[in-house]
Design a binder for these strands. Structure first.
Lengths: 122, 122
DNA sequence: CCTCGTTATGTTTGGCGGGAAATAACGATG
DNA sequence: CATCGTTATTTCCCGCCAAACATAACGAGG
């Protein structure tokens, strides 16, 4: 099942990183291109680029390094910082999801009662 | 410091519960009124009410029971299901936050380097 | 030097979510 | 039966985000 717990980490200055930016980072790492990653996520290039701009500005060093022009027009790849952020975000998500599993199950149960509406009243 | 990790739990049908709805539930429980809770959160009554409507529809039973008219005009309170959802969400948040603490610290460190301009690479 | 694909950036437009305000329903209480 | 404060619901309007479109810069390589 798709990852159901979505995490957004908010920093004290209002900047935040969430699933959208994390997925974008992962796709940039995979495709080596901002435009290709944007296409994969079904978003416009401009939006993807603006997210990259924000990401690059909110950490100590840029997360994405891009090259303009050249053999195939250019490309983009993750810096060491970018890889570290992506990996850490993934780990955080996994850890949080595991820790919340029982509570998620409880909430799911509170919801599931609805589907049972057949015949048996409470 | 304010809780920095925000959780949004997405169900398979697209419905979700996040910090906003959870806070609203808590304030309704505390104030006994939708309008008072809305005022506390700095949102319009209409928005609060629509959130309550969504919350009531997305679980097996309504989370908020409201009374119209009467001595003081009416009011609202959490049902047993509502209390359970609120408590479980709070527990989930606490558990997830604890589990993610070390990763959060890592990300914070990746950000803080900006202030420290420290040269030592990994 | 021309092509090509990508990054980088500006401008415009449209949709839609939310806010504000107005209104109705409601029911204990005096 | 008038009052009162809250819930419930509609309508209108505006601001903002983002999509769409347009364009420039860039640089390896044929």
């Amino acid at each position: 099942m798709a990852p159901r717990l979505r995490l957004r980490l908010r920093f004290d200055d209002g900047a935040y990183i969430g699933p959208g930016k994390a997925d974008l980072l992962a796709l940039i790492a995979e495709t080596g291109s901002i435009s290709a990653a944007a296409a994969r996520m079904g978003m416009s290039y401009k939006r993807a680029w603006s997210l990259v701009e924000v990401l690059n500005a909110m950490f100590a060093a840029p997360l994405v390094a891009s090259v303009r022009g050249g053999a195939h027009g250019g490309g983009a790849h993750l810096t060491e910082t970018g890889k570290a952020v992506l990996a850490t975000y993934g780990a955080m998500q996994a850890n949080a999801d595991a820790a919340a599993a029982t509570d998620i199950a409880k909430l799911l149960a509170l919801r599931a009662l609805a589907s049972r509406t057949c015949g048996s009243s409470s």
